[in-house]
């Protein structure tokens, strides 16, 4: 770009800006190729061995995967993931959207309310888990609070109920991310031209109708991003489970991530852990690659 071809000499090429760009980017590029792509491949390799506490490179084919899908604990983790992901995403999207629309009605103290909704995002999942664990504690938490108010039969023991433990994670994750979803939707709503509302009103549409028929369809790309982001977040949830239920009671609230960690670092089943990591990775790739592709294409279209 800097030299005027075709008579550029080697020296001019080497001192040009593109070469310097490459020089700057090369370390990051190499590091990324190694620690992202190389390491993922390495994990794939480990998953094809029978490694236990230490990597042992004896190839046993897809034995670990067969074992993985036969394991009850993995089945539960996968089932939990889908329960968790669908509820977490559904609740966050609905509540986030409603809150965003309500906040967009020129309400008083909008800034304060928005800040309150969003602060959980500044807190770590560990802290969130600890707070909810305390409140969901049947002996001293919300159950006791309601019973003390006179409803002695009130029961809210999800935390220690194997059938319900996964829903406590939904609740805490929703608490943490809902405000964030609200913020994304609010940004999307702020991007809608105010004249559109005026025009629709003159056409005789009421507010609910305007939102349902005009605004929400316009927010389709926002929905798409939000769902991808939340799905990705659900897939990689780990800290929250560790601090809230630690996968328990038993392993009733395990997710693939906690399964992976337990097998790899807790039980010395390196290959099995690697196989579960590969499953997680494949799911992430299936979601993220099309998303990134469409985002980059969109960016290029806009750039033209």
């Amino acid at each position: 770009m800097t030299t005027n071809n075709p008579r550029a000499t080697i020296r001019e090429i080497l001192t040009g800006w593109p070469s310097k760009s490459w020089l700057v980017l090369l370390p990051t590029l190499l590091v990324t190729l190694l620690v992202v792509y190389g390491y993922i491949l390495w994990t794939v390799v480990v998953s094809l061995t029978s490694s236990r506490f230490f990597p042992k490179y004896d190839f046993v084919g897809i034995e670990q995967y067969a074992k993985l899908w036969k394991a009850d604990r993995w089945q539960i983790a996968v089932d939990n993931l889908w329960i968790f992901a669908s509820l977490f995403i559904g609740l966050s999207v609905v509540a986030g959207l409603v809150l965003a629309i309500f906040l967009d009605q020129k309400v008083r103290l909008e800034n304060v309310i928005r800040s309150i909704y969003l602060y959980p995002m500044a807190i770590s999942f560990i802290v969130t888990g600890i707070a909810w664990k305390w409140m969901l504690n049947p002996g001293l938490g919300i159950q006791k609070l309601v019973r003390d108010m006179g409803y002695v039969d009130f029961k809210f023991d999800w935390l220690i109920n194997p059938k319900m433990a996964i829903y406590t994670i939904v609740l805490a994750a929703f608490w943490q991310s809902c405000g964030f979803v609200m913020a994304i939707f609010l940004a999307g709503l702020r991007g809608v031209d105010a004249e559109l509302f005026k025009a629709a009103r003159i056409d005789g549409a009421g507010l609910p109708r305007i939102y349902w028929s005009i605004v929400l369809p316009m927010l389709r790309p926002v929905f798409f991003s939000v769902i991808v982001i939340l799905l990705y977040q659900a897939l990689r949830s780990f800290d929250l489970i560790v601090s809230l239920t630690n996968g328990g009671p038993g392993f009733s609230s395990d997710l693939p991530t906690t399964f992976m960690y337990q097998y790899t670092f807790g039980r010395g089943q390196l290959a099995q852990g690697a196989a579960s990591a590969v499953m997680i990775t494949m799911t992430v790739i299936a979601i993220i690659v099309p998303y990134l592709y469409s985002e980059i294409r969109h960016e290029r279209r806009n750039a033209r």
Binding site: T43, T257, Y261, T264, S276, L292
Partner: peptide, 28 residues
Amino acid sequence: QVNFRGQNIVYAIILFGCFTPYQAILIP
């Protein structure tokens, strides 16, 4: 700031790093 060949590919390679599922790199 400069256009060079392969720029978008370099960016895509680095960008995907943001989505690394950390489980997949813990062992290595």
